[in-house]
Computed example of a mutant assay.
Amino acid sequence: MDSGQISIGQIRRSEHLPARIAAQLAAQITEGHLKPGERLPTEHSLSKTLGVSRSVVREAIAQLRNEGLVETRQGVGAFVSEKCARPIRIKDEELGDPQSFRALFQLRVPLEIEAAGLAALHHTAEDLARIDEALAGMTGAEKWTHQGVEADLLFHRAVAEATQNEYFAMFVGFIAERISHAIDAARARAVLEEIVEVTIAEHVVLRDAIASRDPKRARQAMRTHLLGAASRINLSLEEF
Results as ranks from 00 to 15, higher is better:
58 R>A: 12
18 P>L: 02
194 E>G: 05
50 L>V: 06
86 R>K: 12
38 E>I: 02
208 D>P: 03
51 G>A: 11
121 L>E: 15
136 A>M: 04
50 L>N: 09
207 R>M: 03
61 I>E: 11
161 E>N: 09
45 S>Y: 09
146 H>Y: 05
100 S>L: 07
234 N>P: 00
51 G>Y: 03
106 Q>L: 09
104 L>N: 05
51 G>N: 06
98 P>M: 06
117 G>C: 03
218 A>H: 01
23 A>D: 14
178 R>Y: 08
143 K>A: 13
41 P>C: 00
59 E>N: 11
133 E>M: 15
19 A>S: 15
142 E>V: 03
226 L>R: 01
199 T>H: 09
202 E>K: 00
188 A>Q: 14
91 K>S: 14
176 A>H: 00
210 I>W: 00
65 R>C: 12
105 F>C: 02
228 G>F: 08
158 A>N: 03
69 L>Q: 08
196 V>D: 08
92 D>E: 15
174 F>I: 01
116 A>E: 04
195 I>K: 01
22 A>F: 02
217 R>I: 07
206 L>D: 00
180 S>K: 13
10 Q>F: 05
92 D>R: 14
153 L>V: 08
217 R>N: 06
153 L>D: 00
109 V>F: 07
228 G>V: 01
144 W>Q: 08
89 R>Y: 12
33 H>D: 11
235 L>P: 04
217 R>H: 09
71 E>G: 07
28 Q>P: 04
26 A>L: 14
225 H>M: 04
38 E>K: 05
38 E>S: 11
11 I>G: 06
